[in-house]
Nucleic acid binder design. Structure first.
Length: 295
DNA sequence: CGGTGGCTGGGG
DNA sequence: CCCCAGCCACCG
């Protein structure tokens, strides 16, 4: 082997050994199943190196800012069967597929000093259910828990599904992020037995943002958005909603004030969320839905 | 990593 | 009043 051949050989070995850090170990078959589940006719724009496929959601991670660009997830009534958030199911976890992500400890101290909580994009409350259809559920009682569905809950608690969010007035009650989840999960999914597809994301814009953590490398999003498609059902048409939330802790005057259109979110992010015509973006949003948010 | 206890505000 | 959903901190 010549010197040059040795270099190429070593380079190949290095690439091979480091490849799993950016390429999740998952079969194309399983990818296709997850895409079918969590997207509507096409993946929202994302650098392919930053896409991660989880049972309960698809993640488009932002490695420079160490928070998600977006996550996309389906919500049905069964997915709300997440066990009570205690014990091993409550803990935030490192993402084994991502190097250099934010760690749980990196957020330590910011709750008291700045009011930042570790805010889920894909919510804990929709990580449950019998995802593998074997009749067993995740369960706080370990001996009763289905390991496969339990892993789905663990994945939702990966730090790659997390960004700093103001706890008071945004992430927690009575914040906008909290309020919208309560409305979707409790009213639309549970009470009305609808199904929905959601895309939750952050918008940074061109300016500087606050950075937290021991290395000051976790970027605090100045805005969040959430696009909700309530799926067509029997006699009801598909309905769409798009919210644009400034990330502040002021008391909000009803989340209906933050309704916008999918087109606006697409213009601000540069992301095409729905490639084809499955989502009728003309059905938007404010006039149809304002009445539901007179809170 | 798991267990335990505390906090805030919503809602019945 | 209680329980709930979001979280946090501390301890072993």
């Amino acid at each position: 082997m010549s010197f040059n051949e040795s270099i190429i050989y070593l380079a190949f070995i290095c690439v091979f050994l480091t490849a799993p850090s950016s390429a999740q170990d998952i079969s194309d078959t399983k990818k296709a199943v997850i895409i079918q589940e969590h997207t509507l006719d096409g993946m929202p724009d994302c650098n392919v190196d930053n896409l991660y496929y989880r049972t309960a959601y698809i993640l488009c991670f932002n490695p420079e800012r160490k928070v998600p660009n977006w996550t996309a997830y389906k919500v049905v009534a069964d997915f709300r069967n997440t066990p009570k958030r205690e014990g091993r199911l409550s803990r935030f976890r490192n993402d084994p597929d991502i190097d250099g992500e934010a760690k749980d400890a990196d957020y330590k101290g910011y709750f008291n000093s700045r009011g930042y909580a570790r805010g889920h994009y894909t919510p804990y409350g929709v990580l449950g259910g019998d995802r593998d259809h074997d009749g067993e559920l995740p369960n706080l009682e370990a001996s009763l828990s289905d390991p496969d569905d339990e892993k789905t809950v663990f994945e939702g608690n990966y730090m790659s599904n997390i960004a700093p969010q103001h706890h008071n007035g945004f992430n927690g009650s009575p914040g906008m992020w909290w309020k919208l989840e309560r409305w979707l999960q409790d009213k639309i999914i549970t009470a009305d037995n609808e199904t929905a597809h959601v895309i939750a994301g952050a918008i940074f814009g061109p300016g500087d943002v606050e950075k937290i953590g021991p290395n000051k490398d976790i970027h605090v999003p100045p805005m969040f958005y959430k696009i909700i498609v309530i799926n067509k059902k029997a006699n009801k048409p598909q309905r769409t909603l798009a919210f644009l939330f400034p990330h502040h802790r002021k008391a909000h005057q009803g989340i209906h004030n933050y309704l916008t259109s999918i087109d606006v979110v697409e213009a601000m992010t540069g992301i095409d969320f729905f490639k084809d015509t499955v989502v009728d973006e003309d059905i938007d949003t404010l006039e149809t839905w304002q009445e539901h948010f007179q809170d």
